[in-house]
């Protein structure tokens, strides 16, 4: 356990914990991003340069945008959770999903043969080696993941494109009568 590891872990876990407890969704999202950056720092500390930068690029650079967009575009409502009729079902679903993920991860970590490196020089993998591994040994996995993501993307496009039939440049259709409420 080095000091660096402690700091990184503290930052990562701390920002994640604070993110969950904050009421301001934007702050939570930014802290979540900080947490991702912390994970990238951890990879860097562990010597996985490529993974660290990829983590930064993908999570801090791209996924964060999606998260922020989602937060901005979702209407914020404090009462949502409390008065939702299916609150219990949601909680159960959340517990189930979380538990399953935890179980899979835990199982993977436990079953993986992790050699405790005695030396101070962990194995380093160059980008080239990694590329060869990915396109060689694990090509099938890569392809499957790629196909899966493509399908997901197409699904998202189809979902998003339905209901956008009206051509641009036309005033939005009248949905509700113009009611003006003031308080």
């Amino acid at each position: 356990m080095s000091i660096a590891f402690l700091i990184i872990a503290l930052v990562t876990l701390g920002s994640a914990a604070v993110a969950m407890s904050l009421r301001n969704l934007i702050h939570s999202a930014l802290l979540l991003i900080a947490s991702w950056a912390g994970i990238a720092a951890f990879y860097l500390w562990a010597g996985a340069e490529f993974v660290a930068f990829a983590q930064l690029l993908v999570y801090v650079g791209a996924v964060s945008m999606v998260v922020l967009f989602a937060v901005l575009l979702t209407r914020q409502s404090r009462v949502d959770m409390a008065i939702a009729p299916d609150a219990l079902r949601r909680i159960v679903a959340a517990l189930l999903a979380g538990g399953a993920t935890l179980g899979v991860l835990f199982g993977a970590v436990v079953s993986a043969p992790l050699p405790i490196a005695a030396s101070a020089t962990p194995v380093t993998v160059s980008v080239r080696q990694m590329g060869q591994e990915l396109m060689g040994t694990h090509a099938a996995a890569l392809l499957i993941v790629g196909a899966l993501l493509t399908v997901a993307l197409l699904g998202a496009i189809i979902l998003a494109s339905t209901g956008r039939e009206d051509p641009p440049g036309v005033a939005p259709p009248a949905v509700a009568p113009p009611t003006r409420k003031t308080s």
Binding site: T74, A171, A174, V175, P178
Partner: peptide, 20 residues
């Protein structure tokens, strides 16, 4: 002008403000 139905009253976009 063609009357535009306002979908409710003008308000800020969701998630904009720390308070409601």
């Amino acid at each position: 002008s063609p009357i535009v139905a306002l979908h409710g009253t003008p308000a800020v976009a969701g998630g904009n403000a720390p308070s409601e």
